[in-house]
Design a protein around this nucleic acid. Structure first.
Lengths: 196, 196
DNA sequence: AATATAAGTGAGCAATTGCTCATTTAAAAA
DNA sequence: TTTTTAAATGAGCAATTGCTCACTTATATT
Protein backbone atom coordinates (compact mmCIF):
# COMPACT_ATOMS: atom_id res chain seq x y z
CA UNK A 1 0.00 0.00 0.00
CA UNK A 2 1.08 3.50 -0.69
CA UNK A 3 1.22 5.89 2.27
CA UNK A 4 -0.02 9.41 2.38
CA UNK A 5 2.57 12.04 1.76
CA UNK A 6 2.46 14.22 4.86
CA UNK A 7 4.37 16.97 3.09
CA UNK A 8 1.57 17.14 0.56
CA UNK A 9 -1.08 17.39 3.26
CA UNK A 10 0.89 20.13 4.99
CA UNK A 11 1.41 22.00 1.73
CA UNK A 12 -2.34 21.95 1.14
CA UNK A 13 -3.06 23.22 4.65
CA UNK A 14 -0.40 25.92 4.54
CA UNK A 15 -1.43 27.17 1.12
CA UNK A 16 -5.11 27.21 2.09
CA UNK A 17 -4.36 29.33 5.15
CA UNK A 18 -2.12 31.67 3.19
CA UNK A 19 -4.59 32.07 0.33
CA UNK A 20 -7.57 32.79 2.55
CA UNK A 21 -5.54 35.15 4.70
CA UNK A 22 -4.05 37.08 1.79
CA UNK A 23 -6.79 37.01 -0.87
CA UNK A 24 -9.89 36.65 1.29
CA UNK A 25 -12.37 33.84 1.54
CA UNK A 26 -14.28 35.17 -1.46
CA UNK A 27 -11.26 34.54 -3.70
CA UNK A 28 -10.42 31.10 -2.38
CA UNK A 29 -10.95 28.15 -4.73
CA UNK A 30 -10.00 24.48 -4.92
CA UNK A 31 -8.35 24.64 -8.34
CA UNK A 32 -6.39 27.67 -7.25
CA UNK A 33 -5.34 25.90 -4.06
CA UNK A 34 -4.26 22.78 -5.95
CA UNK A 35 -2.08 24.80 -8.27
CA UNK A 36 -0.53 26.76 -5.40
CA UNK A 37 0.19 23.60 -3.42
CA UNK A 38 1.62 21.79 -6.46
CA UNK A 39 -0.99 19.09 -6.26
CA UNK A 40 -3.85 17.75 -8.34
CA UNK A 41 -7.34 19.02 -7.47
CA UNK A 42 -8.37 15.39 -7.08
CA UNK A 43 -5.74 14.86 -4.39
CA UNK A 44 -7.41 17.41 -2.17
CA UNK A 45 -10.57 15.31 -2.22
CA UNK A 46 -8.68 12.36 -0.79
CA UNK A 47 -8.10 14.36 2.36
CA UNK A 48 -11.28 16.42 2.50
CA UNK A 49 -14.89 15.67 1.59
CA UNK A 50 -15.45 19.02 -0.07
CA UNK A 51 -14.53 22.68 0.08
CA UNK A 52 -16.53 23.30 3.24
CA UNK A 53 -15.00 20.31 4.98
CA UNK A 54 -11.52 21.54 4.10
CA UNK A 55 -12.12 25.00 5.50
CA UNK A 56 -13.84 23.88 8.69
CA UNK A 57 -11.31 21.12 9.35
CA UNK A 58 -8.37 23.46 8.98
CA UNK A 59 -9.99 26.15 11.10
CA UNK A 60 -10.68 23.71 13.92
CA UNK A 61 -7.06 22.53 13.77
CA UNK A 62 -5.86 26.10 13.95
CA UNK A 63 -8.30 26.82 16.74
CA UNK A 64 -6.73 24.07 18.81
CA UNK A 65 -3.25 25.44 18.15
CA UNK A 66 -4.47 28.86 19.19
CA UNK A 67 -5.91 27.45 22.38
CA UNK A 68 -2.66 25.79 23.34
CA UNK A 69 -0.70 28.95 22.67
CA UNK A 70 -3.17 30.98 24.72
CA UNK A 71 -2.91 28.65 27.70
CA UNK A 72 0.89 28.54 27.82
CA UNK A 73 1.93 29.28 31.40
CA UNK A 74 -1.62 30.19 32.39
CA UNK A 75 -2.59 29.27 35.96
CA UNK A 76 -6.35 29.43 36.68
CA UNK A 77 -5.49 29.97 40.34
CA UNK A 78 -3.29 32.97 39.75
CA UNK A 79 -4.42 36.42 40.83
CA UNK A 80 -6.80 38.13 38.45
CA UNK A 81 -4.24 40.68 37.44
CA UNK A 82 -1.54 38.14 36.70
CA UNK A 83 -3.82 35.62 35.00
CA UNK A 84 -5.35 38.19 32.71
CA UNK A 85 -1.95 39.60 31.85
CA UNK A 86 -0.64 36.15 30.89
CA UNK A 87 -3.66 35.73 28.63
CA UNK A 88 -3.04 39.08 27.01
CA UNK A 89 0.61 38.34 26.39
CA UNK A 90 -0.18 34.91 24.95
CA UNK A 91 -2.97 36.10 22.72
CA UNK A 92 -0.97 39.05 21.43
CA UNK A 93 2.11 36.88 20.83
CA UNK A 94 0.12 34.29 18.92
CA UNK A 95 -1.66 36.83 16.77
CA UNK A 96 1.53 38.68 15.93
CA UNK A 97 3.71 35.60 15.41
CA UNK A 98 1.10 33.74 13.37
CA UNK A 99 -0.25 36.51 11.21
CA UNK A 100 -1.55 34.18 8.51
CA UNK A 101 -3.25 31.76 10.88
CA UNK A 102 -4.82 34.59 12.84
CA UNK A 103 -6.11 36.29 9.70
CA UNK A 104 -7.43 32.96 8.37
CA UNK A 105 -9.28 32.46 11.63
CA UNK A 106 -10.72 35.96 11.47
CA UNK A 107 -11.90 35.43 7.90
CA UNK A 108 -13.79 32.28 8.85
CA UNK A 109 -15.27 33.89 11.96
CA UNK A 110 -16.91 36.45 9.68
CA UNK A 111 -18.27 34.07 7.10
CA UNK A 112 -21.14 31.68 6.64
CA UNK A 113 -18.86 29.04 8.18
CA UNK A 114 -18.95 30.83 11.51
CA UNK A 115 -21.48 28.47 13.06
CA UNK A 116 -19.17 25.52 12.59
CA UNK A 117 -16.28 27.59 13.90
CA UNK A 118 -17.92 28.47 17.17
CA UNK A 119 -17.39 25.08 18.75
CA UNK A 120 -13.63 25.46 18.34
CA UNK A 121 -13.74 28.86 20.01
CA UNK A 122 -16.19 27.90 22.73
CA UNK A 123 -14.05 24.89 23.57
CA UNK A 124 -11.06 27.17 23.86
CA UNK A 125 -12.87 29.53 26.13
CA UNK A 126 -14.21 26.92 28.49
CA UNK A 127 -10.79 25.34 28.82
CA UNK A 128 -8.97 28.54 29.55
CA UNK A 129 -11.47 30.56 31.50
CA UNK A 130 -13.74 28.18 33.35
CA UNK A 131 -12.53 28.42 36.92
CA UNK A 132 -10.36 31.49 36.55
CA UNK A 133 -13.18 34.02 36.69
CA UNK A 134 -14.99 32.14 39.46
CA UNK A 135 -11.86 32.29 41.57
CA UNK A 136 -11.41 36.00 40.97
CA UNK A 137 -15.02 36.67 41.96
CA UNK A 138 -14.72 34.57 45.12
CA UNK A 139 -11.55 36.40 46.08
CA UNK A 140 -13.43 39.66 45.60
CA UNK A 141 -11.06 40.90 42.90
CA UNK A 142 -13.80 41.51 40.35
CA UNK A 143 -17.57 41.83 40.35
CA UNK A 144 -19.78 39.01 39.19
CA UNK A 145 -20.98 39.56 35.66
CA UNK A 146 -22.21 37.59 32.64
CA UNK A 147 -19.49 35.77 30.76
CA UNK A 148 -20.16 37.82 27.66
CA UNK A 149 -19.69 41.08 29.50
CA UNK A 150 -16.47 39.79 30.95
CA UNK A 151 -15.08 38.67 27.61
CA UNK A 152 -16.14 41.89 25.89
CA UNK A 153 -14.42 44.13 28.41
CA UNK A 154 -11.41 41.89 29.01
CA UNK A 155 -10.40 40.86 25.50
CA UNK A 156 -12.22 42.80 22.80
CA UNK A 157 -9.96 45.86 23.30
CA UNK A 158 -6.85 43.72 22.83
CA UNK A 159 -8.10 42.25 19.57
CA UNK A 160 -9.14 45.69 18.38
CA UNK A 161 -5.59 46.94 18.99
CA UNK A 162 -4.10 43.99 17.12
CA UNK A 163 -6.43 44.74 14.27
CA UNK A 164 -5.33 48.37 14.11
CA UNK A 165 -1.74 47.14 14.10
CA UNK A 166 -2.31 44.70 11.25
CA UNK A 167 -4.14 47.26 9.17
CA UNK A 168 -0.99 49.35 9.54
CA UNK A 169 -2.88 52.58 9.80
CA UNK A 170 -5.43 53.82 12.22
CA UNK A 171 -8.81 55.46 12.24
CA UNK A 172 -7.46 58.88 11.44
CA UNK A 173 -5.18 57.71 8.64
CA UNK A 174 -1.91 57.91 10.57
CA UNK A 175 0.39 54.99 11.16
CA UNK A 176 -0.11 52.77 14.18
CA UNK A 177 2.20 50.18 15.66
CA UNK A 178 1.39 47.79 18.45
CA UNK A 179 3.99 47.74 21.22
CA UNK A 180 4.57 46.42 24.71
CA UNK A 181 3.93 49.86 26.21
CA UNK A 182 0.70 50.37 24.25
CA UNK A 183 -0.44 46.96 25.38
CA UNK A 184 0.44 47.71 28.99
CA UNK A 185 -1.40 51.01 28.90
CA UNK A 186 -4.53 49.44 27.45
CA UNK A 187 -4.32 46.57 29.88
CA UNK A 188 -4.27 48.98 32.82
CA UNK A 189 -7.48 50.60 31.56
CA UNK A 190 -9.19 47.26 31.17
CA UNK A 191 -7.99 45.99 34.54
CA UNK A 192 -9.21 49.13 36.28
CA UNK A 193 -12.59 48.77 34.61
CA UNK A 194 -13.02 45.19 35.76
CA UNK A 195 -11.58 45.52 39.29
CA UNK A 196 -13.77 46.12 42.31
CA UNK B 1 -35.08 60.55 -22.75
CA UNK B 2 -35.95 57.78 -20.41
CA UNK B 3 -35.36 58.39 -16.71
CA UNK B 4 -33.81 56.04 -14.25
CA UNK B 5 -36.21 53.98 -12.22
CA UNK B 6 -35.27 54.78 -8.62
CA UNK B 7 -37.21 51.76 -7.38
CA UNK B 8 -34.94 49.57 -9.46
CA UNK B 9 -31.80 51.16 -8.03
CA UNK B 10 -33.13 50.74 -4.53
CA UNK B 11 -34.09 47.13 -5.17
CA UNK B 12 -30.54 46.40 -6.34
CA UNK B 13 -29.05 48.08 -3.26
CA UNK B 14 -31.43 46.39 -0.84
CA UNK B 15 -30.98 42.96 -2.37
CA UNK B 16 -27.20 43.31 -2.43
CA UNK B 17 -27.14 44.19 1.27
CA UNK B 18 -29.48 41.37 2.14
CA UNK B 19 -27.61 38.80 0.09
CA UNK B 20 -24.19 39.67 1.48
CA UNK B 21 -25.55 39.83 5.02
CA UNK B 22 -27.40 36.53 4.83
CA UNK B 23 -25.27 34.41 2.49
CA UNK B 24 -21.85 35.96 3.02
CA UNK B 25 -19.61 37.83 0.63
CA UNK B 26 -18.23 34.57 -0.73
CA UNK B 27 -21.68 33.63 -2.06
CA UNK B 28 -22.53 36.98 -3.56
CA UNK B 29 -22.74 37.20 -7.35
CA UNK B 30 -24.01 39.61 -9.98
CA UNK B 31 -26.27 37.14 -11.78
CA UNK B 32 -27.72 36.06 -8.47
CA UNK B 33 -28.28 39.68 -7.46
CA UNK B 34 -29.96 40.50 -10.78
CA UNK B 35 -32.39 37.63 -10.38
CA UNK B 36 -33.17 38.53 -6.76
CA UNK B 37 -33.75 42.18 -7.64
CA UNK B 38 -35.89 41.30 -10.67
CA UNK B 39 -33.53 43.05 -13.05
CA UNK B 40 -31.26 42.18 -15.95
CA UNK B 41 -27.59 41.67 -15.11
CA UNK B 42 -26.80 44.31 -17.70
CA UNK B 43 -28.91 46.88 -15.83
CA UNK B 44 -26.64 46.64 -12.82
CA UNK B 45 -23.74 47.75 -15.01
CA UNK B 46 -25.59 50.95 -15.85
CA UNK B 47 -25.35 51.97 -12.21
CA UNK B 48 -22.04 50.41 -11.26
CA UNK B 49 -18.77 49.92 -13.11
CA UNK B 50 -18.23 46.39 -11.87
CA UNK B 51 -18.79 44.11 -8.89
CA UNK B 52 -16.16 45.84 -6.77
CA UNK B 53 -17.59 49.27 -7.52
CA UNK B 54 -21.05 48.08 -6.52
CA UNK B 55 -19.86 46.72 -3.19
CA UNK B 56 -17.66 49.66 -2.27
CA UNK B 57 -20.25 52.23 -3.35
CA UNK B 58 -22.98 50.63 -1.29
CA UNK B 59 -20.74 50.21 1.73
CA UNK B 60 -19.73 53.87 1.63
CA UNK B 61 -23.39 54.89 1.41
CA UNK B 62 -24.19 52.70 4.37
CA UNK B 63 -21.18 54.05 6.22
CA UNK B 64 -22.54 57.56 5.87
CA UNK B 65 -25.96 56.45 7.16
CA UNK B 66 -24.24 54.79 10.10
CA UNK B 67 -22.33 57.98 10.83
CA UNK B 68 -25.45 60.09 10.89
CA UNK B 69 -27.20 57.63 13.18
CA UNK B 70 -24.19 57.55 15.49
CA UNK B 71 -24.06 61.34 15.77
CA UNK B 72 -27.76 61.84 16.55
CA UNK B 73 -27.97 64.04 19.63
CA UNK B 74 -24.23 63.86 20.23
CA UNK B 75 -22.63 66.99 21.67
CA UNK B 76 -18.81 67.09 21.50
CA UNK B 77 -18.87 69.48 24.45
CA UNK B 78 -20.87 67.21 26.71
CA UNK B 79 -19.25 65.58 29.71
CA UNK B 80 -17.25 62.47 28.94
CA UNK B 81 -19.74 60.22 30.66
CA UNK B 82 -22.74 61.63 28.85
CA UNK B 83 -21.07 61.90 25.46
CA UNK B 84 -19.81 58.35 25.54
CA UNK B 85 -23.19 57.06 26.69
CA UNK B 86 -24.96 58.79 23.80
CA UNK B 87 -22.51 57.17 21.42
CA UNK B 88 -23.13 53.76 22.94
CA UNK B 89 -26.89 54.13 22.73
CA UNK B 90 -26.72 55.34 19.14
CA UNK B 91 -24.33 52.63 17.99
CA UNK B 92 -26.29 49.88 19.70
CA UNK B 93 -29.59 51.17 18.35
CA UNK B 94 -28.28 51.35 14.80
CA UNK B 95 -26.76 47.89 14.90
CA UNK B 96 -29.87 46.31 16.35
CA UNK B 97 -32.37 48.21 14.20
CA UNK B 98 -30.41 47.72 10.98
CA UNK B 99 -29.29 44.15 11.31
CA UNK B 100 -28.77 43.63 7.58
CA UNK B 101 -26.86 46.85 7.03
CA UNK B 102 -24.67 46.23 10.07
CA UNK B 103 -23.90 42.69 8.99
CA UNK B 104 -23.17 43.84 5.44
CA UNK B 105 -20.76 46.40 6.82
CA UNK B 106 -19.07 43.79 9.01
CA UNK B 107 -18.68 41.44 6.05
CA UNK B 108 -16.92 44.10 3.99
CA UNK B 109 -14.73 45.18 6.90
CA UNK B 110 -13.33 41.65 6.96
CA UNK B 111 -12.73 41.23 3.26
CA UNK B 112 -10.24 42.27 0.63
CA UNK B 113 -12.40 45.38 0.16
CA UNK B 114 -11.48 46.60 3.63
CA UNK B 115 -8.91 49.11 2.41
CA UNK B 116 -11.54 50.96 0.40
CA UNK B 117 -13.90 50.77 3.35
CA UNK B 118 -11.58 52.44 5.78
CA UNK B 119 -12.11 55.92 4.43
CA UNK B 120 -15.81 55.68 5.23
CA UNK B 121 -15.04 54.59 8.76
CA UNK B 122 -12.18 57.01 9.34
CA UNK B 123 -14.36 59.87 8.13
CA UNK B 124 -17.02 58.82 10.58
CA UNK B 125 -14.56 58.73 13.42
CA UNK B 126 -13.03 62.10 12.79
CA UNK B 127 -16.45 63.71 12.55
CA UNK B 128 -17.79 62.23 15.73
CA UNK B 129 -14.75 62.07 17.96
CA UNK B 130 -12.39 64.85 16.94
CA UNK B 131 -12.83 67.39 19.68
CA UNK B 132 -14.77 65.24 22.14
CA UNK B 133 -11.74 63.40 23.51
CA UNK B 134 -9.60 66.52 23.56
CA UNK B 135 -12.21 68.25 25.68
CA UNK B 136 -12.42 65.33 28.10
CA UNK B 137 -8.64 65.29 28.50
CA UNK B 138 -8.50 69.06 29.06
CA UNK B 139 -11.23 68.80 31.67
CA UNK B 140 -9.22 66.08 33.39
CA UNK B 141 -11.95 63.49 33.00
CA UNK B 142 -9.73 60.94 31.25
CA UNK B 143 -6.03 60.38 30.72
CA UNK B 144 -4.35 61.25 27.48
CA UNK B 145 -3.84 58.19 25.33
CA UNK B 146 -3.42 57.19 21.69
CA UNK B 147 -6.62 57.29 19.67
CA UNK B 148 -6.42 53.56 19.03
CA UNK B 149 -6.21 52.74 22.71
CA UNK B 150 -9.17 54.98 23.34
CA UNK B 151 -11.29 53.40 20.62
CA UNK B 152 -10.33 49.88 21.63
CA UNK B 153 -11.29 50.37 25.27
CA UNK B 154 -14.32 52.58 24.63
CA UNK B 155 -16.08 50.81 21.78
CA UNK B 156 -14.68 47.35 21.07
CA UNK B 157 -16.51 45.87 24.09
CA UNK B 158 -19.83 47.23 22.85
CA UNK B 159 -19.41 45.74 19.40
CA UNK B 160 -18.32 42.43 20.92
CA UNK B 161 -21.55 42.36 22.95
CA UNK B 162 -23.65 43.12 19.88
CA UNK B 163 -21.88 40.31 18.10
CA UNK B 164 -22.68 37.85 20.87
CA UNK B 165 -26.28 39.00 20.69
CA UNK B 166 -26.51 38.51 16.94
CA UNK B 167 -24.92 35.08 17.10
CA UNK B 168 -27.71 34.24 19.50
CA UNK B 169 -25.55 32.05 21.65
CA UNK B 170 -22.47 32.77 23.61
CA UNK B 171 -19.02 31.38 24.16
CA UNK B 172 -20.19 28.59 26.41
CA UNK B 173 -23.07 27.54 24.19
CA UNK B 174 -25.85 29.11 26.24
CA UNK B 175 -28.24 31.72 24.94
CA UNK B 176 -27.35 35.38 25.22
CA UNK B 177 -29.54 38.41 24.74
CA UNK B 178 -28.39 41.99 24.64
CA UNK B 179 -30.37 44.29 26.93
CA UNK B 180 -30.36 47.80 28.34
CA UNK B 181 -29.12 46.53 31.70
CA UNK B 182 -26.32 44.45 30.16
CA UNK B 183 -25.29 47.48 28.16
CA UNK B 184 -25.35 49.71 31.23
CA UNK B 185 -23.30 47.24 33.22
CA UNK B 186 -20.67 46.96 30.50
CA UNK B 187 -20.65 50.70 30.03
CA UNK B 188 -19.89 51.22 33.72
CA UNK B 189 -16.86 48.92 33.44
CA UNK B 190 -15.56 50.76 30.40
CA UNK B 191 -16.18 54.17 31.90
CA UNK B 192 -14.37 53.23 35.08
CA UNK B 193 -11.43 51.94 33.06
CA UNK B 194 -11.09 55.16 31.11
CA UNK B 195 -11.74 57.65 33.92
CA UNK B 196 -8.97 59.27 35.90
C1' DA C 1 -46.53 62.58 -34.52
C1' DA C 2 -41.64 62.19 -35.24
C1' DT C 3 -37.07 62.25 -33.28
C1' DA C 4 -33.44 61.71 -30.05
C1' DT C 5 -31.51 59.80 -26.03
C1' DA C 6 -30.56 57.03 -22.51
C1' DA C 7 -32.64 53.25 -19.52
C1' DG C 8 -33.33 48.58 -19.62
C1' DT C 9 -33.08 43.87 -21.57
C1' DG C 10 -32.09 38.66 -22.55
C1' DA C 11 -29.14 35.74 -24.65
C1' DG C 12 -24.82 34.29 -24.23
C1' DC C 13 -19.47 34.51 -24.14
C1' DA C 14 -15.01 33.29 -22.27
C1' DA C 15 -13.29 32.05 -18.05
C1' DT C 16 -13.66 29.83 -13.83
C1' DT C 17 -16.07 27.11 -10.34
C1' DG C 18 -16.38 22.72 -7.39
C1' DC C 19 -15.75 18.26 -8.25
C1' DT C 20 -15.14 13.34 -10.65
C1' DC C 21 -13.25 9.46 -13.08
C1' DA C 22 -10.36 6.43 -15.62
C1' DT C 23 -5.79 5.73 -15.08
C1' DT C 24 -1.02 5.58 -13.20
C1' DT C 25 2.24 5.25 -9.38
C1' DA C 26 4.33 3.91 -5.13
C1' DA C 27 5.07 0.85 -1.54
C1' DA C 28 3.54 -2.76 1.96
C1' DA C 29 2.39 -7.65 1.98
C1' DA C 30 2.52 -12.08 -0.27
C1' DT D 1 9.31 -10.80 -7.68
C1' DT D 2 4.55 -10.50 -7.93
C1' DT D 3 0.31 -9.00 -6.06
C1' DT D 4 -2.58 -5.86 -3.71
C1' DT D 5 -3.96 -1.63 -1.98
C1' DA D 6 -4.65 2.99 -1.76
C1' DA D 7 -2.44 7.47 -2.88
C1' DA D 8 -2.03 10.56 -6.59
C1' DT D 9 -3.03 12.36 -11.06
C1' DG D 10 -4.60 15.29 -15.31
C1' DA D 11 -8.09 15.85 -18.31
C1' DG D 12 -12.34 17.55 -18.27
C1' DC D 13 -17.60 17.93 -17.04
C1' DA D 14 -21.68 20.55 -15.86
C1' DA D 15 -22.68 24.58 -13.67
C1' DT D 16 -21.69 29.14 -12.58
C1' DT D 17 -18.91 33.34 -12.75
C1' DG D 18 -18.42 38.47 -14.11
C1' DC D 19 -19.57 40.89 -17.80
C1' DT D 20 -21.02 42.52 -22.85
C1' DC D 21 -23.65 43.53 -26.90
C1' DA D 22 -27.14 44.01 -30.21
C1' DC D 23 -31.44 45.27 -29.35
C1' DT D 24 -36.05 47.12 -27.40
C1' DT D 25 -38.57 50.45 -24.59
C1' DA D 26 -39.92 54.63 -22.42
C1' DT D 27 -40.03 59.50 -22.29
C1' DA D 28 -38.53 64.60 -22.87
C1' DT D 29 -37.97 67.56 -26.67
C1' DT D 30 -38.85 69.06 -31.35
Amino acid sequence: MRYRDENKMQAIRDCAIEMVAKNGLENFGINRLAKAAGVSPATIYIYYKDKEDLLTSISIEEGVKMTRATLKGFDPNASFREGLWVQWKNRAAFSLDNLLAAEFFEQLRNSTYKDKMREAISLEFRKSMGSFIENAVKRGEINEMPLEVYWSVAFAPLYALIRFHNEGQSLDGRKFKFSESIMKQTFDCVLKGLSK
